[in-house]
Write a protein that binds this DNA or RNA. Sequence first.
DNA 1: GGTGTCCGTGTTATCGCTCACATAGTAGGG
DNA 2: CCCTACTATGTGAGCGATAACACGGACACC
Lengths: 332, 332
Amino acid sequence: MADVARLAGVSHQTVSRVINGSERVAPATRDRVQAAMRLLDYRPNSMARALVTGRSRTVGVIGFNTTLFGPASTLYGIEGSAHEAEYLTSVVSMPEVNRDSVLLAVERLRRHNVEGVLLLASESSAIAALAPVSRELPLVALEAEPIHGIPTVTIDQYGGAVSATRHLLELGHRRIAHIAGPAGSLEAQLRLAGCRDTLAEAGHRLPAGTGFGDWSAGSGYEICVRLLEQDPDVTAIFVANDQMALGALRALDEAGRRVPADVSIVGFDAVPESGFFTPPLTTIHQDFVAIGRRGFEALRDRIENGDGPATHQVLEFELLVRASTGPPPAGA
Amino acid sequence: MADVARLAGVSHQTVSRVINGSERVAPATRDRVQAAMRLLDYRPNSMARALVTGRSRTVGVIGFNTTLFGPASTLYGIEGSAHEAEYLTSVVSMPEVNRDSVLLAVERLRRHNVEGVLLLASESSAIAALAPVSRELPLVALEAEPIHGIPTVTIDQYGGAVSATRHLLELGHRRIAHIAGPAGSLEAQLRLAGCRDTLAEAGHRLPAGTGFGDWSAGSGYEICVRLLEQDPDVTAIFVANDQMALGALRALDEAGRRVPADVSIVGFDAVPESGFFTPPLTTIHQDFVAIGRRGFEALRDRIENGDGPATHQVLEFELLVRASTGPPPAGA
DNA sequence: GGTGTCCGTGTTATCGCTCACATAGTAGGG
DNA sequence: CCCTACTATGTGAGCGATAACACGGACACC
């Protein structure tokens, strides 16, 4: 910076003014300074600036299964939004969700002076762990429970589950099972609750022993195999995400049950591949990227304008009816 | 820091020594300082430290399709490794790969004083754009061509394609088609070349008009539909990734062609879902997480030990034979 | 022509830390 | 018992920027 100032024949402060786009600089001077900056390939040192302003213009993201389509897409949305606002995104991916790992992640981010943190985890334990932190550091939780005064952005998981279940009821199904996500996950709980409540309203109930998977195709497969043994009369299964639904599809195929002629399947998430499953999967679409964008905006608002009351944004979902659902077999 | 020093009755320099684990501190003093730090909930300011040491302990990652399983997993590997080395990972996800977007991304990261950059893109144009930058900033490219003296970490794409193609030849297939990835992608090119060369060696050749997809299931579907029209005698298709293979599976199903009885399919990547496709997909497994880890290690080495000659690491792949491949139909 | 006001620019302090060097005390060798 | 050598700690400078304030000159107004 001193070099630039010297070359342009001004003081370092004037250079600083040019960098920061201050009004109080004569156009001629501004041009001279900019020319000097270009000539010297000068790049302001963000660390020095951050030190004096106390602002790092960096936000942290804490994620877990970031290799999954959902979180990866949300991260993409966050990054896109952050980019536009000239923030940098720092990611911490933990292999497992628990109190300690969340605290470790946030500590790591704080040490690097992030200005705020986005939590990408629906485990209520993760949010609970961060509740005290949120008083010192702006925090927004995505796909999370609106508790502890932490702002959240989610889609209407419960509503999506209701919609999926209604779809099956409307097709005439009566014996409907659910393959749930991890028991500790709020999303999984809401999807289960939405399904159960909707069935109850219609005078039906979930078969006993709903299995809790881990979102993976493998777990969906295993749970479905068990389900078919325990309850061969099931004519429809609402599966808590598309990957597990794929596993269920595989299990049904191996069991010789046709989809949707014998059993209908509904998934959740609408991953891009789901339209190419055999058969193409009926599922609930949620806009992960939008969640990320909204999440970042909410965080930025808290960073720049301080704590207001915590907002809880709920985005819309969409039922995508494809070929994996149809009326139950005549005999059922 | 001054507060800690005062409370512990030492100078700020001694506090600094304790923070940095210097040897030259009496155990009693160290304890007193640590107690003071805990009491005051003191956290060293990384920006000040970065300013004076000139080290931000942050690396940048430039990615494109980071919502895909491969890049997302690699990112996960990078982050894990970076975490262990106490580096922070900052991600920039660009919507498209081209010279400008790559340069923009790297500029953004440099402005935030990252110490090095990992490029997650197999497009040679992206690497070419960064070649000049790599002389000023440590850089490692993943899944990329070893050019311009930039270190790389990849798996043996060509070898994987050879292995996949041989597998089909050994099963007795003679009319083998390929569905390729984007023409600009090095991975796609190598997979295509490996397939073509292996066929040529065996005295066969690729049917004319190999389609170039965009890695998505949808593109795989469309290319396969076209392929089946143009070349109905094909008995096997090697598809450049699993998502496109899923699309191909769908197209075959709709065309009434059974897999593997009528047509065999081999994918590439071994995404976790591929074992649950209908039928489970024969594919080439590559360890994306390991690529990320190795990539970070290589970058760290360059950051901390300066430029040596550029290393090019090639990791092993593995052919996973599942149910989507079998001998060609008797008539073929 | 004096004076207040605004504009463009410069001067100095400061952010929180590490580095290089200074210094006091302690121990060991002859 | 002196000198060297090393240990534990302190002092002051400076990293590269911004903030706060100071200052000279041009202009307008009375």
